Amino acid sequence: MRICLVIDDSSVVRKVASRILSSFGFTMVEAATGAEGLVVAGEAGPALVLVAANLSDMPGEDFVRKFRALPAHGDAPVVGLLVESNLGQMTRLKRAGASAFVLKPFDRASLSMRLQPYLSLPAAA
């Protein structure tokens, strides 16, 4: 089972991402905050993580660092969700361990194009 975790304060962003990625065979789990996302990640072992660059409880790069520190599941690709092409924010996320970026708002075409390298991920062990 391929699990994708979407972490964003916006329920609309989580819902849209979940609908799109579930059509690619992912089982979707969602979280509204970074702390909730870390708990869910520890339990679910996602094969792919989408995280907002700005969360209500922590910066996205803090989430990425903490996620990467998880012993069993920290190697999954992490995609940062940004509202603009902010080089500073992208650099901080990349240094923390983000794999790629997607600009919000997104639709099926733009999200699937940016996530193409990760859509055929094998199920997590």
Rank of each mutant, 00 (worst) to 15 (best):
M1H: 07
I3Y: 13
C4D: 03
L5R: 10
V6A: 03
I7C: 01
D8Y: 00
D9K: 08
S10P: 06
S10C: 12
V12K: 01
V12S: 12
V12R: 08
K15G: 15
K15T: 15
K15S: 15
K15Y: 15
R19F: 07
R19K: 10
I20D: 10
I20R: 08
L21E: 01
L21F: 07
S22F: 07
F24Q: 12
F26L: 09
M28V: 10
M28I: 12
V29I: 15
V29K: 02
V29C: 14
E30K: 03
A31W: 03
A31S: 09
A32E: 13
T33G: 09
A35E: 14
A35Q: 14
E36I: 00
L38F: 01
V39N: 09
V40E: 08
A44C: 05
P46D: 07
L48Y: 04
V49P: 03
A53K: 00
D57M: 05
M58N: 10
P59W: 06
F63N: 05
V64H: 07
V64P: 15
R65V: 09
K66P: 13
R68C: 12
P71W: 11
H73F: 11
H73N: 11
A76P: 05
E84G: 03
E84Q: 10
Q89G: 13
T91I: 11
T91K: 05
L93T: 09
L93M: 06
A96P: 04
G97T: 08
G97N: 08
F101K: 02
F101I: 12
P105L: 14
F106G: 11
A109I: 11
S110L: 02
L115C: 03
Q116M: 03
Q116H: 05
Q116E: 02
P117V: 13
S120W: 07
S120E: 15
P122Q: 11
A123T: 04
A125Q: 04
